[in-house]
Design a protein around this nucleic acid. Structure first.
Length: 283
DNA sequence: ATAGGCGCCTGCTGGC
DNA sequence: TGCCAGCAGGCGCCTA
């Protein structure tokens, strides 16, 4: 689910709700998440104060006053919310942390359990974790020359490249399709085949689409909610993703769906020329 | 190097 | 109405 705009929305929602608050006891469900949650961590959290809530790619980092960091990934169906302690606990809630005063709780819910919650004891451990992950730059910070070089270095198709968190962090299936539509580039185009102008167009399109989606608080297809429980609204503005057979908003040609990089991929066959037609048109 | 497939989970949809 | 295959916003691992 949650790609950069959704994760960014959660972070912006949680920041004022968590910063400066003290964490109390934590309660964990018996179901395993993608990464194991150590039993000792709940006690380790108690009494710690939240210093900062931030995002890196699709990861949420809650930095604590003793240098430890609580790190979440939302997987496909993760929800990280602050709610009144009296609110009924929804099914699939895997971690509940009491907050000081006000009777609120931070809750992590994840139906499919592809997400994770992890506690890193200090900045060095967190740094090592992200180093091993090897996340690429944030999409809003892409250096034009480095981006062109990264595309020029691979024979993979654009869809696969956009989904690769090591090339650019935070783009997932929705925003890969929406960015390629915005840039008018076919998802099967070989990255190396892009001109400098096309690479620039794609770089700008990614930032444009993500910024637009953040303004709408991300996309809710089914499960996603922000840090205060509100749904996103960008799903109403999809131009390609999940619009198979419906008219392209630019040229009315029906949107097509194919499978690329193992993911369903949506594009306009007229606005986003196929690699073959690009070749035959003598580009 | 890269594509493709599978597995991890649960729940919903659509076709028969 | 009921059943079941197929699919879903992610990602790591394996094979060819």
């Amino acid at each position: 689910m949650p790609e950069l705009p959704e994760v960014e929305t959660v972070v912006r929602d949680l920041r004022p709700l968590l910063t400066g608050r003290r964490l109390a006891s934590g309660k964990v469900s018996k179901h395993a998440l993608r990464r194991p949650w150590s039993k000792a961590w709940a006690a380790r959290l108690a009494g710690r104060r939240v210093e900062e809530v931030r995002r890196r790619g699709k990861w949420i980092v809650i930095a604590l006053d003793d240098g430890a960091a609580l790190v979440f990934h939302l997987g496909m169906t993760g929800q990280l919310t602050v709610v009144p302690a009296g609110e009924p606990v929804a099914g699939h809630t895997h971690l509940t942390i009491e907050l000081d005063g006000g009777g609120q709780q931070l809750r992590f819910r994840d139906v499919r359990r592809f997400g994770s919650a992890t506690l890193f004891p200090d900045a060095a451990a967190l740094g090592r974790f992200f180093e091993v992950l090897g996340l690429g730059p944030e999409p809003f910070d892409l250096d034009p020359a480095a981006w062109r070089a990264a595309l020029g270095r691979t024979g993979r198709c654009l869809k696969a490249v956009l989904l690769d968190q090591g090339i650019v962090a935070g783009v997932g299936n929705i925003y890969a399709d929406e960015s390629l539509f915005e840039a008018r580039l076919h998802p099967a185009r070989v990255a190396r085949s892009l001109s400098a102008a096309e690479a620039d167009r794609l770089r700008k399109a990614i930032a444009t689409v993500l910024a637009r989606a953040i303004k709408r608080r991300g996309s809710t297809i089914r499960d996603y909610v922000g840090g205060s429980g509100r749904r996103g609204g960008y799903q109403k503005e999809f131009r390609a993703y999940q619009r198979t057979g419906r008219p392209c908003p630019r040229c009315k040609t029906p949107i097509e769906a194919v499978r690329l990089a193992g993911r369903s991929t949506h594009f306009c066959p007229n606005c986003q020329r196929t690699p073959e037609s690009v070749l035959t048109s003598g580009y």
